[in-house]
Each structure stands twice: as C-alpha cells, then as structure tokens.
C-alpha cells in the first residue's frame, strides 16, 4: 500500500472567527500503481487534501501513512517524503525560474544532493518522459508555449524520481490540443513507470477517459469513491453538489429512458458508441 489516510481532519484558523473545517474525517487508501482522479468543485477540499499527502499541510487530527509508516512520527524524514510524493501545483509554469530548461529541471535533483552528472542524467530522462524536444533544452523556459512550459514543470518533479505523482489541475488554461497532449503524456508515464498518479481536476470528461478510480470531494468530505462507471452512476447526486457526469452519460440515460437496450453506465465516447451500436445490432 502506498498512501493511507486515517480519519484526517483539517481546520483552518481554529478558535478564530475564520475557523473553517476544510477536511472532515477523510479516510482513503491508495495502492501503489493506481491512477486516481480527485474531483470536487472549488472549495470542496481537494487541494487541501493533496497538500496533506506530502506533508505540506499537517492534519489537525488523524493520521497519514506512507508505505506503512506514519508521516507524523517523530523524526520522520519529511524531505525524503517530499521527493517520493511529487506535487505539481496549479499553473506550475509560474514556478520556473532558471536560465534554461535543463538547468531548471536539474534544480530538484541538485537539492537531493546528487552530483552534477546524475542531475543532468535524471533531468534528461524526465524531459524525455514528458515528450519535451531536445532542441529546446538550452532555451529560456519563459520563451516556451503554455503547454511546453507545463511539461518542463512536470519534468522538474519527475527528475526527483517520485513514486507518487500528484497533479493539481494540470490542464487548467490549456487549449484542447494542449490538454489532450498533457493527459496522454501523464497516462503514458503511468503505464511506462508504474508510478502512482493522483490527478485533481474538475473536468469529468478528462477524468473519465484516463483514471481507474475517482474520489469525489464535497464540503471537505469524501462523498463517493469508485470506478468511473460506479461514480457517474450517481450523476443526480453529483449535480446537487455542483458537479456533473460526462455528457455521454446523460445521452445514455436519455436513450435508456426512451426504451433503448443500453447499459447507461458508459462514461467515454468509445464505451457509449459500443453500447449504442450493440443495441442496434441486437
């Protein structure tokens, strides 16, 4: 088991007028190698949740285990945890700062105490993993397109060889093609390296296409947890909390209501098309 949360609570500004219960009794186990999506509207607690995973925020109560060991134990090596659970923030390209792409990606491994040679080797591998073209390695990161910048920022985390990669809205602000490219790359990375990937998003369509499991957060609580099919079957509840199932799920429900013999739990275009074609051929 990779990460486990046990009854985690987090309260902002406790004892003041601004007290807010951001996480309420969240328990969650994530296995090594899973691809998990976390969805929830703004303020649902999803960003607070992921910042607990590498100890950036400390739970007010409850416990978090990484590979079986409590991260709140005295003397726990937080620095190591933060390299093993790599966190890519929203708009990570704002965190690029070095003179060229390669140097920027070397920054993480350099702080891990690796030699210049090793840093560069890791950085090159990471840039290759995210599909960043070698001819731009010596270019200033500020001259790249939004999608390319984001790849560099993700490579900066990958260069530290994390076992778990957590991404907060990695496609925000990208155009549709840029979005698909980044998500395909993450998917490829997951398959290639067997890394655990945790993806925070509010696009149901994106999530449904890639992940094995979806965790829905609402008002600081874990509301649903299951495969995309299981979670999107609750589309009416999702709507009540300001979320929605992918468009195709609605089409399938409509068809079922009109008497089509379809399963109504499709969450991707592929699945929906298969199901509809089958109903025509039967």
């Amino acid at each position: 088991m990779s990460i486990a949360l046990e009854h985690v609570n987090y309260v902002y500004s406790p004892g003041t007028a601004y007290e807010r219960h951001a996480l309420k009794d969240v328990s969650l186990e994530i296995e090594q190698g899973q691809f998990v999506g976390i969805i929830g509207h703004t303020g649902s607690g999803k960003s607070t949740l992921i910042q607990h995973l590498n100890g950036l925020m400390k739970a007010t109560s409850g416990n978090i285990y990484y590979e079986g060991q409590s991260i709140y134990e005295e003397g726990y090596d937080m620095k190591k945890l933060r390299t093993q659970v790599g966190l890519v923030f929203q708009y990570p390209e704002y965190q690029l700062f070095e003179v060229d792409v390669l140097t920027d990606v070397c920054f993480g491994p350099k702080n891990q105490g690796l030699s210049q040679e090793e840093c560069e080797k890791n950085a090159r591998e990471a840039l290759e993993l995210v599909g960043f073209p070698e001819k731009y390695y010596r270019q200033s990161p500020f001259e790249l397109s939004g999608g390319q910048k984001r790849r560099v920022a993700i490579a900066g985390i990958l260069a530290m060889h994390p076992k778990v990669l957590v991404l907060d809205e990695p496609t925000a602000g990208l155009d549709p093609k840029g979005r698909d490219e980044i998500l395909d790359q993450i998917d490829h990375l997951h398959k290639e390296t067997g890394m655990t990937v945790i993806l925070v998003s509010h696009s149901m369509e994106d999530i449904a296409n890639y992940v094995d499991r979806i965790v829905v957060m609402n008002r600081g609580e874990k509301m649903l947890d299951g495969t995309p099919r299981e979670v999107f079957a609750h589309y009416k509840e999702l709507e009540k909390v300001g979320l929605a199932a992918p468009q195709v799920t609605y089409v399938m429900h409509d068809l079922k209501e009109r008497g089509f013999d379809v399963a109504a739990d499709a969450t991707t275009i592929e699945e929906a098309a298969d199901d509809i074609m089958r109903s025509f051929h039967d």
Partner: peptide, 28 residues
C-alpha cells in the same frame, strides 16, 4: 487544435460506424 462538444463527437463516432445520423449534432 480545437475539439468539439462530446455529444457531437459521439454522433460523429456513430456515423463512422455506419449509423445514418445528420452532421453537426450539437445538443444531447
């Protein structure tokens, strides 16, 4: 580098698989 609404995509996919649907379906 643009895409189309998911409903339009589904209709297009079904057209490709041989269903006689009109082009440019926009709404569910």
């Amino acid at each position: 580098r643009m895409d189309v609404p998911q409903v339009t995509m589904l209709a297009e996919e079904l057209r490709k698989r041989g269903l006689d649907l009109p082009r440019g379906i926009l709404r569910r």
